[in-house]
Computed example of a mutant assay.
Amino acid sequence: MRLQNKTIIITGSCTGIGKAIAQRCVAEGAQVLIHGLEPDLGQSLVNELGPNNAALHIEDLTNPDAPQHLVDTAITAFGKLDAIVNNAAMVVASNLQTTDLDFFRKMLEVNTLAPFALIKAALPHLTATKGNILNIGSVNAWSGEPNLLPYSVSKGALMTLTRNLGDTLMRENHVRVNQINPGWVLTENEAQRKRDHGLADNWYADLPAVYAPSGRILWPQEIAAAAIYWLADESGPISGQVVDLEQHPFIGRNPPKDTSTIPAPPN
């Protein structure tokens, strides 16, 4: 098992990509702290994984004390901390005209500052175990959709944080920091968002090739499979790296002339 006896905090892991990462981590021998805002879904996942393998902490990450609460809960439950996965994110569509400063600050607070705060809180324990940090970003970090302005900026800032700390913490603490940028992923929340936008329940079954050359978009389990490499010792001393996980080159592609009927990806 690639994560035998490792303890990992995974934010935003009651659903979606975070849930898939938690399931895969336990399958690889780890113990995980599940986090999110949905106590029923979180408890259901803990029950699935088993109380010896998982614990649950429900709290809004914008609470100033939340990062320390997460670390304390993991240490109390499992005795040490080997890694954190900053996966929790706020995904809301908005552009220059529809974004005000309060909303922009909220997006940065959740998507960029909360990961920074958790890294600071966890660092003493990660230093002790020579552990690692995995940030979950987005391909939109490179520029982003017009209607995902603050979201894209927040993920771009997270990417810079990863590269900066990936150098600093490796030199000073022997703690690795890396990031994966998923493309368009079929999570439960994404499926529901598109239904809320008026699309059919099976909207993802027939997508234009410009967005899904393979005929489908990514699954959370595929992101989780990639995450294990960065959380495991087999990635060695590699730090400060950002890897895009998409089925096509995201930058420089030519969209179709008529995009009016295409549901825009959120990630």
Rank of each mutant, 00 (worst) to 15 (best):
D196F: 07
Y229V: 07
G29Q: 09
D244A: 09
G215D: 07
H248D: 12
M159S: 13
I251M: 15
Y151M: 07
L56Y: 00
C14T: 07
T160D: 12
H174T: 13
L123K: 07
L70C: 06
Q97C: 08
L165S: 12
A226G: 08
E59H: 00
K257C: 02
A157I: 12
V85R: 00
N87M: 09
H125G: 00
G183R: 02
A66E: 05
P237T: 14
K106C: 10
I262G: 13
G36D: 07
P146D: 13
P249I: 03
K155V: 10
D167L: 15
A232R: 00
R176S: 06
T259S: 13
I217H: 09
D65L: 14
G16H: 04
A212V: 06
I133E: 05
N164R: 06
L126G: 04
A54G: 04
D102N: 15
Q247A: 15
D167R: 13
L61G: 11
L108I: 12
P220L: 08
W219C: 08
W203N: 11
T73F: 02
I58P: 02
N140Y: 10
N63I: 08
E38A: 10
L231N: 05
V185S: 12
N267Y: 14
A225S: 15
N52R: 02
R176E: 03
P51S: 09
L169K: 11
G166D: 11
V110M: 08
P255C: 03
P182L: 09
H248A: 15
A191G: 04
I9R: 01
T127P: 05
S44R: 03
S152T: 03
G18D: 08
P64L: 11
N181D: 14
T162C: 10
F78T: 01
K155C: 13
L118A: 09
P220C: 07
A114M: 02
T259E: 11
Q43N: 11
